[in-house]
């Protein structure tokens, strides 16, 4: 349509009033709002900064000192704490064990949970089975550790079950030996966490629309073809989330390893997290312990970062 001939243009208006004038009004209001909002956020910010963010800074600082037992906090040590790590036999074993633990604690629950989810779909009494498998999830890790400690005890459940099969008393100290302690604890972990993975995969599966599946079947696709080409891509997001979370908690697991590993002579090497605890709170090598904590942090970040990058690549591929 047409304009009023006497209307001022944007430029004329702005020249008349002045940009800064308007900006000033808006800025004043935004600032007022900021302080209002800050009042609301302050308890959260104070608590989080004070107890969760500042400690990180301090920890990094400690790791560069020579702090041990009661002295050495003020002596600068450069990277010497970090340099001591790769050679330290405990550290090497702990690192290795942590890697195994994380890998196992991610892969096994995922594989078994996924398998169970697919398997239990549509089975009669499915809900009963699902509930039973999920039940361990509600127990605290410490309680689970206590129970399974006795399951694995020399006069414990596992040995008596094996004795039934073998026909003679079995007396293996599962948690006392190098080659059995980690697998045993992994089995316990799987017992507890499979339920959650299974539930999440089931949720993901039920979110898949029926139409593409039915269309595929009408088109003549076999079950496994349907599975790999339609179900899996749609399930990917769920699986990725589960994996990332599992990796994160895998690195920081402490309760299970500490309680169940108490009978194992090499307890401190069960994982980096346990190793760090021993060095700090039992030996008093605070700076060294801080360095280990920093290493754990770096490893966690790297793994998460790699995972996110890979996830983006996978996303792009499946589009």
């Amino acid at each position: 349509m047409t304009d009023r001939p006497d209307r001022e243009t944007d430029l004329q208006l702005m020249e008349r009033i002045g940009w800064h004038q308007i900006k000033a009004v808006e800025d004043r209001a935004m600032k007022r709002n900021f302080w209002k909002a800050f009042a609301f956020m302050s308890p959260a910010i104070v608590l989080v900064c004070g107890l969760l963010l500042m400690p990180v800074v301090y920890n990094i600082y400690f790791s560069f000192t020579k702090w041990k037992k009661f002295a050495g906090l003020d002596e600068f040590a450069g990277f010497s704490n970090y340099a001591k790590l790769p050679g330290n036999p405990y550290f090497d074993t702990a690192f290795y064990n942590t890697a195994i633990w994380v890998a196992a604690s991610v892969v096994f629950p995922l594989a078994i949970g996924f398998g169970l989810a697919v398997f239990l779909r549509g089975v009669a009494f499915g809900n009963v089975f699902k509930n039973i498998i999920f039940l361990p999830r509600i127990l605290a890790p410490t309680a689970v550790a206590v129970i399974w400690f006795h399951v694995y005890a020399p006069h414990g459940v596992l040995n008596s079950l094996l004795a039934l099969v073998a026909g003679q008393p079995v007396d293996i100290g599962w948690l006392y030996q190098d080659n059995t302690v980690t697998p045993a604890i992994i089995a316990t972990f799987v017992w507890q966490s499979v339920g959650l993975v299974m539930v999440l995969v089931l949720l993901g599966l039920s979110a898949i629309p029926k139409d593409p599946l039915e269309a595929a079947r009408v088109d003549g696709a076999t079950n496994s073809q349907t599975f790999w080409h339609i179900v899996m891509p749609l399930l990917m997001p769920t699986l990725v989330v589960v994996t990332i979370l599992s990796v994160l908690s895998g690195f920081t697991t402490f309760d299970l390893l500490w309680v169940m590993g108490v009978a194992y002579p090499g307890q401190r090497t069960l994982s980096l997290a346990v190793f760090m605890y021993f060095e700090s709170f039992q030996k008093g090598s605070w700076a060294f312990g801080s360095a280990i904590a920093v290493i754990i942090g770096i490893v966690v970040f790297s793994v998460t970062w790699i995972q996110t990058v890979m996830q983006n690549r996978v996303d792009k591929m499946t589009r």
Binding site: I17, Q21, I22, V25, E26, A29
Partner: peptide
């Protein structure tokens, strides 16, 4: 007029 938006000028 209600006061829900700031008046720029």
């Amino acid at each position: 007029i209600a006061g829900l938006e700031i008046i720029s000028h």
